[in-house]
Amino acid sequence: MSKWQSERSIHEMLKDTPPLRESSDSITSGTEPKFPTSRSMPFPPAYAPPDVSQNGAGSSTLLRAGSSKLDAIRNWGVSTYKCTKQILYEKLGKSSRTVDTELEAQIEMLRETQRKYAGVLRLSGALTAQLAAAAGTQRALGECFAELAQKSPELQTQFLYNADTQRTLTRNADTLLAALHFFNNSLATLTHKTIEDTLLTIRQYEAA
């Protein structure tokens, strides 16, 4: 740069500088002095920090969900380990068999119920057999009264009345026998099938 160019630049800078009076007036009045600004270098915008409130809430929710899942897996692992250890000790004879007192009480109650139902079924079967025999006797007796009514005209009215009575008793006995047969079949299914299958499942579970 030549001397003439440097002197010219200094003169141009002095021209752009505000007068001393204006600078002093701005200082005494409290206003900002007016300095020339370059249009090629704008001031950067104010920095605004990102909003992390929603992201923070979502992260905390994910952390809580992950923590609960980890706790569930840990508890399941501990429980499985204890159960497996107890089963192995029972198989090896190093520990007594685990017994659920409430479950054992319910199993014993089921066995007692089965015994009672079996007793009822036995008595009902005996009643059915006796009633069937009585119905057969009443049917035969009614036929005898009907024959006597034909052979004894003087007692025909009484014999016919007795014959009709025995026939009525026989019909009622047949209805009762049908109900008893249905009751016996249902009770036999409950006693010898349903309850027995339940007890068999329990025995297989205990043996496993």
Rank of each mutant, 00 (worst) to 15 (best):
V99C: 12
N172E: 13
L199T: 05
G142A: 03
G77Y: 09
A134T: 02
Q138M: 09
R203W: 04
S96N: 07
S53K: 15
K91S: 10
Q150C: 07
P45L: 14
R203K: 14
L127F: 04
L14N: 01
D25L: 09
I27W: 06
G66T: 09
A173K: 03
E112K: 13
I202G: 01
K151F: 10
T128I: 03
R203G: 07
R139S: 06
L127C: 06
S152Q: 10
E206M: 15
V52C: 05
R64M: 11
A105F: 06
Y161C: 10
T37V: 15
Q54G: 08
L200M: 09
L131K: 00
Q138D: 08
V52W: 01
M1N: 06
L176V: 03
T61S: 15
A178Q: 08
V52G: 03
D100G: 04
N75M: 05
S67C: 04
T28G: 10
T201D: 10
D164N: 13
W4E: 10
T168R: 12
E104T: 05
S2A: 05
S59F: 15
A133N: 14
E112F: 08
E104G: 03
T37L: 15
K94M: 11
P153H: 01
I195R: 03
R39A: 12
V78T: 12
T157V: 14
E90A: 07
C144A: 14
P42D: 07
D71F: 02
G93R: 05
F159G: 03
H181M: 08
P33H: 10
G56L: 14
Y47M: 14
T157N: 10
T189H: 14
Q86L: 08
V78Q: 11
D197R: 05
T17G: 02
T84F: 09
Q138Y: 04
M41R: 12
N75I: 08
Y205T: 14
V78A: 13
A208M: 11
